[in-house]
Structures are given as structure tokens and as C-alpha cells.
Computed example of a mutant assay.
Amino acid sequence: MNTPEERLAELGLTVPEVVPPLAVYVPAVRVGSLVYTSGQLPIIDGALIATGKVGGEITPEQAAACAQQCALNAIAAIRAVAGDLSHIRIVKVVAFVASTPDFTGQPGVANGASELFGAVFGDAGVHARSAVGVPVLPLDAPVEVEVIAEIAG
């Protein structure tokens, strides 16, 4: 069985550096066997990969790619606190989607994160989830994802 990092490599991805906080908080906190991430934005190398509203200037497909990057950044935050990803179970994912008032496809956008967790963690990536439409997110990001993970064993 491949490790989560090996599964990421098969997808052409790697765990990035932890995105530095934009304000007064930490990227993730461990409480007992649980790791709570702060909201993760679709940031690569210090910059958002897209800005704007889903249903406006951002397509649902672009937003799903943003959600995937948010999930990858969450994996980095989880690994920074937990160390080894091979004992991680994704418990809950919340996706915030900055969207136009008539856009109702938030669950499809959130699939960008959920599908990555499934591909990386297998059965341990199956999780409960909420997908919420909001009027605006920090830095005009189209998507923000937060995660609760469990360190098993």
C-alpha cells in the first residue's frame, strides 16, 4: 500500500510548504488525537491562484481546482502538526465558496477537495462535509477549506 505522499506523487502533486498565516492564528492545532486546520486558501508560492466569485468571473471548474489547492494546503498544515500522514483520517471538511447569489453549485466545488482527500487517503479520506456559499472571502479568494482530521493509532 502506498503512503499518502506516494499517492500524491502519482497524481503529480507534492505536499507544499505550510502557508503562513495571514493574521493572528496558526495553520493547525492538535487537540488530543484531532487536528483542526485554520481555513486554507488556494495559495501557491504566496499568491492566490484565482480571485473573484464563482458564478461570476470564476467557473465551477476553476473553483474546484481552487478547492483542491486548499485541500493540499490543509494536508501540509496537518502534516506539520501530526508529522506522519500515514495515520491520518479526514473526519470533517467545510468548504466556503464565495459565489454570486444565483450560484447553487457549492457541493460540486467542494468535490475538488473531497476527491483529493479520497485519492490521497483512500478509505481514511472519506469524510463528513459542508459546502457553504458566502458573499466574500479573505483576499477575494473564491474558496476556503477547513479540515478536522484524526491521528489514528
Rank of each mutant, 00 (worst) to 15 (best):
M1F: 13
N2L: 14
T3D: 10
P4C: 13
A9W: 06
E10C: 13
L11S: 12
T14N: 13
P16W: 10
P16S: 09
V18I: 09
V19W: 04
V19K: 02
P21Y: 11
P27N: 06
L34I: 08
L34Y: 11
V35G: 08
Y36E: 02
T37K: 07
I43K: 01
D45V: 06
A47W: 00
A47Q: 04
I49Q: 02
I49R: 00
K53W: 10
V54A: 01
G55T: 12
G56S: 11
E57K: 13
T59V: 11
P60A: 13
E61H: 12
A63I: 06
A63V: 07
A65Y: 05
C66R: 09
A71K: 08
A71R: 09
V81D: 03
D84N: 12
S86L: 02
S86I: 00
H87W: 06
R89M: 01
R89H: 00
R89C: 00
I90A: 03
V91Y: 01
P101D: 12
F103S: 12
T104V: 15
T104L: 12
T104P: 03
G112V: 04
S114V: 07
E115Y: 04
E115G: 06
A119C: 10
F121R: 05
F121W: 07
G122M: 08
G125R: 01
V126T: 11
V126W: 08
H127F: 10
A128K: 15
S130Y: 15
V134I: 08
V136P: 00
A141C: 05
P142I: 09
E144D: 09
V145K: 05
V145P: 06
I148C: 09
A149P: 07
I151V: 15
A152P: 00
G153W: 04
